[in-house]
């Protein structure tokens, strides 16, 4: 049986809102370690990988592995019914055909209970090895979101160039071009404002902005985004959770 209680419903709300436009049907795999999701978008360009570690929950038990096949659009509708500050408990039997969501208002005795019918979802699971990337950058997630939104007004593609002392975002379109250059900086008082670059090799990679527009929906999950890039391989965009992560692997664009 699964019973996982979030101190605040807002975390699961943010997670679902962050991925529901990238993938619609996905399996939430629950184990003693927490909940994981891996799913690929319909165009097979973007892979979503989520881990909500058991330490995120104020109470968590899952005796044996349970798979919840969820339609995220329906899940999002139900989850919006709860208040951000409510306790949220997910409950499912061992071989469930539904999952129950219980919202408890902390300021009153109100308890709201919803159940979502589950689906049999047959998805392919990809093996993702840890790899050494040419460059790893860390920057404020909100700045990355703004840069990508600004440059998406000009082009469908975002070019990212990384050297040891700068990160350059570029977009070239029919109506004009744009670029934003960032330099590494350490902010001791506000570490979340810092920008760091770790470089093994210079990077020049290009990505579809329509996918990046979906990725930056994770911005509210973390003050910082970690971007790991190697030339001619998928980039990893990561928002860290208190325990776990939301990762997006995005295939680049390049000449064959």
């Amino acid at each position: 049986m699964l019973e996982g209680k979030f101190e605040e419903a807002s975390l699961l709300k943010k997670v679902v809102e962050s991925i529901k436009d990238s993938v619609q049907l996905c399996n939430f795999v629950c184990s003693e370690h927490g909940i994981t999701v891996q799913a690929v978008d319909d165009s097979r360009v973007l892979l979503v990988s989520l881990l909500i570690g058991n330490e995120v929950f104020s109470d968590y038990r899952c005796d044996r592995n349970i798979t919840l096949g969820v339609d995220l659009k329906s899940f999002a509708k139900i989850i919006r019914c709860g208040g951000n500050d409510d306790y949220l408990t997910l409950i499912a039997e061992d071989s469930p055909d539904s999952v129950t969501l219980v919202f408890e208002d902390k300021n009153s005795d109100r308890i709201s209970e919803y159940s979502l019918k589950l689906m049999e979802i047959d998805n392919e699971f990809l093996k993702i090895d840890d790899m050494d990337y040419d460059s790893v950058i860390k920057m404020p997630s909100i700045d990355f979101q703004k840069i990508c939104r600004d440059l998406s007004t000009l082009s469908e593609s975002l070019q990212i160039l990384i050297t040891k002392d700068s990160i350059k975002f570029m977009a070239e379109g029919e109506t004009g071009n744009g670029s934003v250059i960032l330099k590494p900086r350490t902010d001791i008082d506000k570490p979340e404002q810092s920008i760091t670059v770790k470089l093994n090799n210079a990077v020049n990679s290009t990505f579809g902005l329509k996918y990046i527009a979906d990725i930056v929906k994770g911005t509210s999950l973390s003050n910082q985004i970690v971007i790991k890039i190697s030339n001619r391989t998928p980039a990893l965009f990561e928002y860290k959770l208190q325990s776990g992560y939301l990762r997006f692997y995005l295939a680049p664009k390049f000449e064959d």
Binding site: V40, R44, V45, L46, L47, E124, F125, L126, K127, I128, S157, T206, G208, T233, P234, Y249, L250, A251, P252, K253, F254, E255, D256
Partner: peptide
């Protein structure tokens, strides 16, 4: 021209 690559070209299925 640059072509959008497919994620399945980089990761193998389990």
């Amino acid at each position: 021209t640059k072509k959008q690559q497919n994620i399945f070209s980089f990761f193998s299925k389990l």
